[in-house]
C-alpha cells in the first residue's frame, strides 16, 4: 500500500484529510510540523506528502527545500495545502519543489482532483 504523510499543525485538518485520502487507498502517516515530517521521511520515504505551509518549529517550505536535498527526497509527490492563495506565494512553493497546490478551505473533490493530476490515483477516480 502507498503511504501519504499528512503534515499540518491542526489535528482537525489532519483528521479530515486522513479520511479523504484513506478512501483513495493510501496508508496515512501524520506529522504536526516540518521537523516531525523530516523524521518520518528519513525513516520511510512516503509516496505522497500533503503539506501545510505555516507551522511552528519548521514550516512547510523549509521542510520541502530540505526534503528535496535528501537522498530519495525527490521521489515523493508533494502537494502543498495552505490558506496562502497569492499567486507569488504559489509560484514560490512550486519553485521550492512542490508538485501541486491546494488552497484551503478544501473538500474531498479538490483533494481527489489534485491527487489525480499528480498521477497518484488514476484519472477516472476524479
Amino acid at each position: 500500500m502507498k503511504t501519504c504523510l499528512v503534515v499540518d499543525d491542526s489535528r482537525v485538518i489532519r483528521k479530515v484529510a486522513r479520511r479523504i485520502i484513506e478512501d483513495l487507498g493510501f496508508e496515512i502517516a501524520e506529522a504536526a510540523d516540518g521537523m516531525e515530517a523530516m523524521a518520518w521521511c528519513r525513516t520511510a520515504m512516503p509516496e505522497a506528502i500533503l503539506l501545510d505551509w505555516n507551522m511552528p518549529v519548521m514550516d512547510g517550505l523549509e521542510f520541502l527545500r530540505q526534503l528535496r536535498a535528501e537522498p530519495d527526497g525527490k521521489t515523493p509527490v508533494v502537494i502543498i495545502c495552505t490558506v496562502e492563495n497569492d499567486p507569488a506565494r504559489i509560484a514560490e512553493a512550486l519553485d521550492a519543489g512542490a508538485n501541486e497546490y491546494i488552497m484551503k478551505p478544501f473538500d474531498g473533490d479538490i483533494i481527489i482532483s489534485k491527487f489525480a493530476q499528480s498521477g497518484l490515483v488514476p484519472e477516472m477516480a476524479a
Binding site: 492563495n85 504559489i90 509560484a91 512550486l94 501541486e100 488552497m103 479538490i110 482532483s113
Partner: peptide
C-alpha cells in the same frame, strides 16, 4: 471561485492563465 479553479485545473495552468 477558489473552489471552482481547484477542480481539474493544474496549479501551473492556474498561474499561467488566471489572475487573482
Amino acid at each position: 471561485t477558489q473552489f471552482e479553479i481547484q477542480r481539474g485545473l493544474p496549479i501551473r495552468s492556474l498561474l499561467n492563465h488566471f489572475e487573482k
